[in-house]
Amino acid sequence: MNVRLEPARAHDRRTPGRTGHAVSRPVRSVLGSHTVPTPALSVLALICLVMLFVNPAFLSPGNAGAVAEQSAVPAVLAVGLTFVILMGGIDLSLEGIMAAASMSTALLVANDHSGMNLGLWAIAVGCAVGAVLGLVAGTTVALLRVPSFIVTIGTWQIGLGIAQLLFGETPPRVTDESFRGLADSKAAGLPGIVWIALLVVALGLVLQHYTRFGRYAYVIGGSEETALLSGVPVRRYRAASFVLAGATAGLAAVMATARSGVGNVGIATGLLFTTIAGVVIGGTFLTGGRGGVLHSLVGVIVMVAIGNAMVLAGISSYVQQAVQGVIVVAAASITLWRARERMRVIK
């Protein structure tokens, strides 16, 4: 079969009745389309507006840099996860994958435990560890037809187990300064991990818009049956999405390890919540078929900005968790507002 590949946005129109309307008002058509995460951006703008009155330091370049730095790791995670979710799957294994990748990376660069010193090649190994765990999940989901929810809980445990095996008596400390420099050294005012994250997002966007993999992700998520009947090799693409998610989780672990300077089994504690909530707030449907890399990026930034804003606003630790929960629910309601009228299954 020979499918002509066009950028996704050309296909992604709203219902036909409204299309004519949209053409006459180009601004609205951009705002109303599904390709720009307008609702998530407006939530971000709302946070900025509120913080302008509460504590303007939120908008200072220094703090914007801090938010960017703290968003880098979950943003890379979100890029891979987006494709899994676009196809209607879910990947819960990222905390386990990151544990395994963090421990193996820390033990392969110069460190105080093993005599290894692979230098920056360890980055590739970290990604490969993630990709292999992703492949295990992907093939199990695709070939054995086991729901991704349970399979990735399994690979989460496998990853944690590997990480625990690699742990000796103390966490391995990274002594390779060039590896640490990936995270710390700044270019144009932003630390290295932010640039890596931007690169990954750019690659994710290319993948989403201009490759068969990205385009089919929407088809499979929209209707797997249609995709199958049209001859799309659904299983292969689905397995590939888990490999990609695993590889990005591996890279995220490398970045987090470079940033904190130790291999850590608990390196990803709490990141599953930040990332999945970010992807959903960004406007990627858990049922698949809608959303995208840019959406997830904005969603993740919203999540990180909420945490940052609460510290700057001086909200007591005791109520912070609850406040964060309320904001997440409110933000999700706002971003998914337009989706509410459609004939849509909410899971």
Partner: peptide, 23 residues
């Protein structure tokens, strides 16, 4: 100046401190 939970966690400790240092 302020206190904040970082959940016994290293990365959270780093993030909260970074935010405090900008604040």
């Amino acid at each position: 100046l302020a206190d904040q939970t970082a959940g016994w966690d290293r990365t959270k400790g780093q993030n909260v401190t970074q935010t405090y240092l900008t604040k």
